[in-house]
Design a binder for these strands. Structure first.
Lengths: 243, 243
DNA sequence: TTTGGTCAAATTGCATGCAAGAAACTGCGG
DNA sequence: CCGCAGTTTCTTGCATGCAATTTGACCAAA
């Protein structure tokens, strides 16, 4: 992908996730081109990229539609993500944790401790927590040294509300968020312990449950509340339908 | 994707898998266009599709190169595929196997029995076995009713030599192929048994091991033999490097 | 009122053309 | 003989234009 195309794709993706287009709304390429202020060709290419990412549905000679995701699809994706991370954890544990890998994970834990002691009420602290969490999960997957896992996880993370950074938001919004953040942090700590002790099965179980709790939180958070207002500010929240 | 683009993409993918281009060879879009007998635009679009599938590497302003896969990458992909199918099996077992789902899987088993009793030496029987195997694995994934798993499995199957149909070829080429086919068939039988008995953990273990054996066969089959000649006829075999 | 057919406007799919950037070549100096 | 800068050639990236297909409206007939 060239530079201009990359920019156009990013802008369009953000616009879709921000809810500039309603779910199932047809996307005409002239309109997209005008919105993005690019040529029709670039708009078209960007749309084809987003089609392959799964954000748009495209039918031959009938253009593109914004794809809406059901709550079940989101929860399913989170669980699959957890299964893949569980596999990564198992592989790392079996192979043994390298010094550099251990350091990277440990740095995330230290950062988390620091943030928890300072309180995570402010926007800055929340952003820092999200970045830390993303870094922890990325490091784990990279440590597994298995490109297929990386590819699959990246693919899933393209879905709205299914990435590691999106998952975390639930914890802030749920009641007793500080407790939930501590629980998540505890999972991470025990994972690192299991990895160091080469306990592959335990490490996998921890990650699976870590994701399962996320999926459940997501269901509760979006499903039980009468609407999606609680998810305001979450990229892609408007694309989720509760049926 | 429109019809013409679909055709062009398929033709180019087949050409690459057939070894029409050497690994790491640069692909110029005029040459591709002439080979496929389409316009430069279609060639370009097809190349961008194959880039997203992972078959081509693209650098901005520098065109595309054919991506070569190491033996490890292939084996890794097969193992991840197995992990995803294991998850699918667990989900199906936990939820309970529906009548239609059970019938579809059972039909594959009956077909397998039939083929085994007739002998699988001929090309026709081999093709039938491959189709049966593909159908069995597809049915399992579909029965899990989890789109994220479907997407991830499809993504992995795009890699050369990592799909369910490619995996099977090992069994034919290995020594004592009839025995190996029976073993694979036995895995399938025990899987269906576990699914019916709602033994999720057992079902997952069967699928994981099923894939693990495939990955090992692949390593032996391609790695131990002094070259890739044994894989002749396998789509994508030429893209694998042994280093 | 509904169904079916025809035509026009809109929209996508594809080809061609042009400009910007990269690779290759040539000639010069060390 | 080797390295380097200027120039040429080639290749990709993008815009525009045209043809094919779809969509929607309008009208007639049952």
């Amino acid at each position: 992908m060239s530079v201009q195309l990359e920019a156009a794709t990013g802008a369009l993706r953000q616009a879709i996730l921000d809810g500039a287009f309603a779910p199932d709304e047809r996307l005409r390429e002239v309109a997209v081109a005008e919105t993005l202020e690019v040529s029709r060709t670039l708009a078209r290419l960007a749309m084809s990229v987003l089609e392959k990412e799964g954000l748009l549905l495209r039918e031959p000679n009938r253009g593109s539609r914004v794809r809406a995701f059901s709550l079940k699809e989101i929860a399913d994706a989170i669980e699959v993500r957890g299964e893949l991370e569980a596999m990564a954890a198992r592989l790392v544990a079996e192979r043994g944790l390298g010094k550099g890998q251990s350091d990277r994970l440990q740095a995330c834990l230290s950062e988390a401790e620091h943030l928890l002691s300072q309180g995570v009420g402010g926007a800055g602290a929340r952003a820092a927590w999200v970045a830390m969490n993303q870094s922890f999960h990325d490091s784990l997957v990279q440590a597994a040294d298995n490109r297929a896992i990386e590819v699959a996880v990246r693919q899933i993370s393209l879905l709205p509300l299914a990435s590691a950074s999106a998952i975390i938001f639930d914890l802030f919004d749920a009641a007793g968020s500080a407790l939930q953040l501590r629980r998540s942090h505890d999972d991470h700590c025990r994972l690192l312990d299991a990895l160091g002790a080469r306990q592959g099965s335990r490490a996998a179980a921890i990650m699976r449950e870590h994701a399962f709790r996320s999926a459940e939180n997501r269901r509760l958070n979006l499903g039980n509340s009468s609407n999606l207002a609680a998810a305001e500010g979450l990229p892609g929240a408007r694309l989720v339908r509760l049926d």
